[in-house]
């Protein structure tokens, strides 16, 4: 597909800016996103090209605005829903529950 992922030759992104002494992961959510994506890949309901296609289907402006592991999480969620392993509703509900628990924890 002619998506935002197909970047070769595009202009306007600016300097490359490598980060000195870069850590493997920059935050704990990246570690978890990486690991659940690999673990679910090993579960075998989809292959790597299906994962790539799921990431490529991110809306182009959003793809360019977000980071690598955000692409991964978008792709993982799409595959989980398409394969019937999770529903969008239960993911939303769990996000709300975790947010509420976190707020309650912060106020106490």
């Amino acid at each position: 597909m002619n998506g935002a992922h197909d970047l070769g030759g595009m202009h306007g992104f600016g300097a490359i800016s490598p980060e000195p002494d870069e850590p493997v992961f920059h935050a704990d959510w990246e570690r978890r996103a990486f690991a659940i994506t690999l673990a679910m890949g090993a579960y075998g309901r989809w292959n790597l090209d299906m994962s790539r296609y799921a990431r490529e289907r991110m809306e182009p402006a959003e793809y360019l605005r977000t980071s690598y592991y955000e692409h991964w999480i978008h792709g993982l969620q799409l595959l989980l829903i398409e394969q019937g392993l999770l529903s969008a509703a239960e993911i939303e509900a769990r996000m709300q529950r975790i947010a509420a628990e976190t707020d309650a924890g912060a106020e106490s």
Binding site: M1, D6, R52, Y53
Partner: peptide, 12 residues
């Protein structure tokens, strides 16, 4: 070619 699905031939 411009397949609307996954492909590994870059546009360039």
């Amino acid at each position: 070619i411009n397949p609307p699905t996954h492909t590994r031939i870059p546009r360039y």
